[in-house]
Each structure stands twice: as C-alpha cells, then as structure tokens.
C-alpha cells in the first residue's frame, strides 16, 4: 500500500472533494511485472501440453494456470487489490455461482450419461 498515492493537496481538490485522496495509481514496475508473469504463464500453459499427465490432470493443470492468470489480472489490472472489498465480493460470488452451476451439472451428467448411446430405433409398429 506504500505505492504512489496522489495526495489530495497535490491536485488542488475542491472543498469537500476527497475523491482524489482515494486514487490508487498502480506503479509502472508492478504493471510490467504482472505483464511478464502473464507472459510466462502463457508460455508454461502451452509448453505443458507436451507432457502427458493423463487426460484429467492435464485439464486441471491448464485450468489452474488459467485461474492464476485470471487472479493476476483481477487483482492488479482490475485494481481489486486496492478496491472496496465489496467489488471483489461481487466478482467472487459470480465465479462461485458459475462453478456451482458447472459442478452440479457435471455431477448429474456423470450419473446419467456415462454410457449414453443413441437409443435403439424403436421396433416398427404393427400396421393397424
């Protein structure tokens, strides 16, 4: 939190206007560091497909890297790290419900459709 923060006095704020006091300016080195981390993770996620950990593990590894990248973007590029926690709550809630939606649907899919095959063609009805 000791990053550059514009002091209200430096921007000649109008009386009662404390908006400027809440400006959090992300320092350039942090932006570049996040960018570099995102590039490295992109490289890793491509490179990792050359290793076979099995079908399931590969998906989870790819998803884990994607979640790490998304966290970096949300925390630093989208300012969630310095924002009101309520904004983060909104974001996390949306993610939670998406996960719930997909998870429960997959559970059901697992129960009913593992060996799903197209139904056999019904027997020809006797002519009436």
């Amino acid at each position: 939190m000791s990053d550059e923060t514009i002091e209200p006095s430096s921007v000649a704020a109008a009386p009662g206007e404390d908006h400027a006091g809440h400006v959090h300016v992300v320092p350039p080195w942090l932006l570049l560091a996040v960018f570099a981390a995102l590039l490295v993770l992109t490289f890793v996620t491509v490179a990792i497909t050359h290793f076979d950990f099995g079908r399931t593990v590969n998906v989870w590894v790819a998803l884990g890297i994607a979640v790490a990248k998304a966290t970096l973007v949300a925390l630093f590029f989208m300012h969630l790290k310095w924002d009101s926690p309520f904004n983060g709550l909104v974001c996390v809630t949306a993610m939670f419900f998406v996960a719930l939606f997909i998870g429960i649907t997959l559970l059901d899919s697992k129960e009913t459709a593992v060996n799903f095959q197209p139904p056999p063609v019904p027997a020809a009805r006797p002519a009436e």
Partner: peptide, 8 residues
C-alpha cells in the same frame, strides 16, 4: 494480454 497492459 499486451492490450490489457496498455489499458491498465
């Protein structure tokens, strides 16, 4: 990702 950096 680069365009995200320039946007930030």
């Amino acid at each position: 990702i680069t365009s995200s950096l320039t946007m930030a």
